[in-house]
């Protein structure tokens, strides 16, 4: 199986962490962040019949470098025809609604490139996966591993697992209310603020460098 990691952070990404959850010795990983290698990647793509794309949400869709790779693939007419493809998309937001447009896009892309779309696995709340101890995401890890095992042998995805990983489409009013209360205490910004302080940038956090220009 070929795993196409579409995160601009490459090996240091949450996408890479997710890939490690199900990676097997015979699998190959390519990093789409390496734009100059895209042409070379086409030859690798041609050699595999099961392909998984993993990438984070960037401004409500795929990162630009991933779209550029798709466009490159399209030029190599018929390269993806008949191949089995699945997608794992993730975002830091806790709701899956942010990923819906992208999930729909994969269906359009499958028609355009002629591949067989297995499914899209949606994982919200992924920010920090790479920093968390493995046991913290054990359930998600097991679910993804089971789904990828099904993908390898062309079984349809277990819909229950797909839905469990996607979680709630939108937060409910109570959760939003609690978040708004916690926001006033500063708890919701702890991760950002600790990083800003570590970088001696906390006092500049609200800077507007382009206001006076």
């Amino acid at each position: 199986m070929l795993i196409c990691n579409g995160s601009p952070r490459g090996e240091m990404s949450n996408s890479a962490t997710i890939a490690k959850w199900f990676l097997k010795d015979q699998d190959k990983v390519i990093l789409l962040m390496k734009g100059p290698k895209h042409q070379e990647y086409l030859d690798i793509l041609a050699a595999y019949d099961h392909i998984v794309f993993i990438y984070p949400l960037y401004v409500d869709a795929m990162p630009g470098i991933v779209k550029a790779f798709f466009e490159r693939v399209a030029i190599a007419d018929g390269l993806m025809a008949g191949k089995k493809v699945s997608f794992i998309i993730h975002s830091g937001f806790p709701e899956s609604v942010h990923l819906e447009v992208l999930e729909r896009y994969h269906r359009i892309l499958s028609k355009k490139l002629g591949f067989v779309l297995a499914d899209t696995i949606v994982i919200p709340g992924s920010e920090g996966f790479r920093l968390m101890p493995p046991k913290q995401n054990r359930k998600k890890q097991q679910d993804v591993m089971k789904l990828m095992d099904q993908f390898r042998i062309d079984q349809p995805f277990d819909d229950h697992l797909v839905r469990r990983l996607a979680g709630k489409r939108q937060s409910n009013k109570m959760r939003n209310f609690i978040f708004s209360l916690l926001e006033k205490t500063g708890i919701t910004n702890l991760y950002w603020n600790s990083n800003l302080k570590r970088n001696n940038a906390y006092n500049k956090r609200f800077d507007k460098p382009y206001t006076e220009l």
């Binding site: 630009g64 779209k67 892309l109 028609k111």
Partner: peptide
């Protein structure tokens, strides 16, 4: 382009953050 906006536009949109 391929059922979506171009990579040329998406690249710039990503850099608005």
């Amino acid at each position: 382009r391929l059922g979506f906006v171009t990579a040329t536009l998406k690249k710039t949109m990503d850099r608005l953050i």
